[in-house]
Amino acid sequence: MSPARPPYDPELSAYLEASEFLSGLEFTLDGIPQLRESMSQSMPTLDDIVGPAGLEHIELTVPGPEGVPEVILSVIRRPGGSAAAPCVYYIHGGGMIIGDRSVGADSFPEWIERFGVTVVSVEYRLAPEHPHPAPVEDCYAGLVWVAEHAAELGVDRERVLVAGTSAGGGLAAAVALLCRDRGGPRLVGQLLICPMLDDRDRTVSTRQYEDVAVWNRAQNTFGWTALLGTAKGTDDVPAYAAPARATDLSGLPPAFIDTGSAEVFRDEDVDYASRIWAAGGQAELHVWAGGFHGFALFREATVSRGAVDAVHNWMGRVLNS
Rank of each mutant, 00 (worst) to 15 (best):
G95S: 09
V237C: 06
L153E: 05
R217H: 15
W277F: 01
I91F: 08
E284S: 01
A213I: 11
G169M: 07
D30W: 13
E263R: 12
F256L: 15
R78H: 02
D258E: 03
T234Y: 04
L25N: 14
A279Q: 05
G81R: 12
L55Y: 00
L73H: 04
V122Y: 03
H130V: 14
S250F: 12
G24F: 12
A141E: 07
T302N: 08
P79S: 09
F292D: 08
R207G: 13
P69F: 05
Y89R: 08
C179K: 01
A84S: 11
L73W: 02
Y90A: 05
P185S: 13
D211I: 13
I193K: 06
P65Y: 01
H149K: 10
G233Q: 09
D235P: 06
L73G: 03
H57P: 04
P3M: 14
H293M: 10
V155L: 04
V68T: 09
V214E: 09
L35E: 14
A4K: 12
G67I: 06
P3Q: 14
Y8F: 07
V120K: 10
G54S: 03
A289F: 01
V287Y: 00
N220Y: 07
P65G: 11
A231R: 12
T234A: 04
N313S: 02
E113N: 12
P44Q: 00
F256I: 11
E17D: 06
H312G: 04
G294E: 08
G233V: 07
E37N: 13
Y8D: 01
N216H: 15
E17F: 03
A4M: 12
R78P: 02
I76K: 05
A301M: 07
S42K: 11
L285V: 06
Q190C: 14
F222A: 15
Y90G: 03
G316S: 03
A278L: 01
F256H: 09
H149Q: 11
S42H: 08
A105P: 09
V175N: 11
A279V: 07
G154Y: 09
R299G: 12
L178P: 11
A141R: 02
L153F: 05
P109F: 04
V144T: 12
Q190N: 10
R157K: 06
I98P: 10
V122L: 00
S321W: 03
I97H: 10
G164M: 07
